[in-house]
Structure formats: C-alpha cells, structure tokens
C-alpha cells in the first residue's frame, strides 16, 4: 500500500537562505504526527510546501502516490499548471494560526464557498454539509454569525470546519492555537482530538507539548531545516536521544 504522504529530500530556499535542507518523511493513512521545534526550524515552511503555499526548489512531495506541485519531463523540473495545483491543494485541508476566515461571509458561507466553487455542490447540498460540520465543532447555533461576531476559539473552529468539510485526505494544522487567549485554546484542541479519534490523518505544527504528547502517534522534531529526531511521543518526550531535543524540551512548557 502506498503511503498517504511521502516527502523525499525536500529543499526550500528563500533567496540564498536555505530553510529546508533535505527533509524526508512518510506518513500512513490515519497517522497523527506533531511537528515540534523552535521558531525558524522550518516546521511551518514544511507544512506550507505540502499544499504549495510555498514553492520548493528540490525534492518531491507525494500524496497517495500523486506528485504535488511539480513534474519532471525530460529531466526538466516544471511547476504544474495552476488548475492542477488547485485540484491538488484540495487533497489537503489547512487551518492557519490567524484563522483567515472570510470576514464578509457567515460561518455557513465560509464553509460553503469551497463546496460550491470547488466541489460544485448546489447551495442546498453545501448548506447541509456546512450544518453537519459546524455541528461537529459545536457551532451550529452560530451558523449565521459572521467572523467578527465570534470569539477567536469559535473562529478557529469554523476555520477547521471549513477545511474538513472539503473532505481532505490529510489535515494540516499550522500553530492553530498560538493566536488564541489561553482560555480559548482547549476548545480548539478538543475539536482536533475528536478528529484524531475519528481516524483523520493529520500533521500538526504546534507549541502545545502536552497536546502533542497526548494526541500524536508520532512526533517529529525539526531542527535547523532538518528532522532532528522522530519517534513515538513517549520516547521523544521522556527519553530524548539528541541533546538538541533535550534542550528544546527543557525550554518549552509542558502543561
């Protein structure tokens, strides 16, 4: 069986600064992987390469055996046509640190946009799907509220519903609780946890160590553009093999 996600020798530069220096990673269907590491270690960049929000200069990323973003024809590596890339982006769903809800659309409108424009559903079908997922994140009663009328935690839950309603094969979470007031973090983590329990495949960039420990089947520690260490959460957090990880864990709060 092919892996859900296969990253091979991923290289990414901003100008002359190399931020990813050869990352390899495979992920099976249903795995929940947390990516930890200090800021600037490349964890967010790696996530954003997977859905082509960032271009990358070397290596390959495949989802379900399908090469993402680039194709090599006759030895020349080319960016795939935009329409193809847009279609491939829909294989994944992403939740952002700043939520990025569309402020001029209600919660329902935010969830429905992709369903109508990308999945070509009728508005009625899309509304039904939006109701189902907003219910799942506990916000059915806020379905006609606008982002400006919701708390940060509620906005992030709508954003997660918007991503998951597209029925992606893989969910990408990019520091989704970092912009939240501490008392709102938990409601969002509960939603992610429930998705994990349902068997959703997820890559989670996070600073919440306790959460990473509890929810992940595997943890990846990124260090200076490379994978510094990876393994199951128990080993990683209790018996780090590298000094780098041990140091990083010492400076992070585990609560």
């Amino acid at each position: 069986m092919t892996n859900l996600l296969e990253i091979r020798d991923l290289h990414k530069r901003y100008g002359t600064v190399e931020v990813l220096k050869g990352v390899d990673c495979s992920m099976r269907q249903g795995e929940v992987i947390s990516i930890i590491g200090s800021s600037g270690s490349g964890k967010t960049t790696m996530l954003r390469c997977i859905n082509m929000l960032e271009e990358f200069q070397g290596g390959t990323i495949s989802i379900d055996g399908q090469e993402i973003g680039y194709q090599t024809v006759g030895g020349v590596r080319r960016r795939k046509p935009e329409r193809e890339i847009a279609r491939q982006r829909a294989l994944t769903g992403m939740a952002f640190q700043q939520f990025n809800l569309f402020p001029h659309m209600s919660a329902a409108g935010n969830v429905m946009l992709g369903l109508v424009k990308v999945k070509k559903m009728s508005r009625e079908e899309a509304r039904a799907v939006a109701e189902k997922w907003l219910d799942r994140v506990g916000l059915l009663s806020r379905i006609d509220h606008y982002p400006g009328q919701l708390s940060g935690g509620q906005q992030q839950r709508v954003a997660i519903a918007r991503a998951i309603a597209m029925n992606p094969k893989l969910m990408l979470f990019d520091e989704v609780t970092s912009a939240l007031d501490p008392e709102l973090v938990n409601e969002v983590l509960q939603v992610i946890k429930a998705l994990a329990d349902d068997g959703m495949s997820m890559l989670i960039v996070t600073h919440e160590m306790r959460f990473a420990y509890e929810v992940s089947s595997r943890v990846i520690f990124m260090n200076q553009g490379r994978i510094g260490e990876e393994g199951n959460p128990r080993e990683m957090f209790l018996k780090p093999k590298t000094e780098r990880l041990a140091e990083f864990l010492k400076t992070s709060t585990f609560n």
Partner: peptide, 27 residues
Amino acid sequence: VPPGQREAGLAIGLTEMQIRTSIIIPL
C-alpha cells in the same frame, strides 16, 4: 486585504480567479 485571505482560498482549492471574484474584490 491581508495575504492570509488569498492563502485560505488557495488552501480549499480555489483558483486565483475564483479567489479574486469571491474574496479579494468583495473585501
């Protein structure tokens, strides 16, 4: 218009043109 709006549109699989008409221009 914050760049995150475009990225959120891209992430759900919208094309650049759909992002313009549904998100960028209305905002």
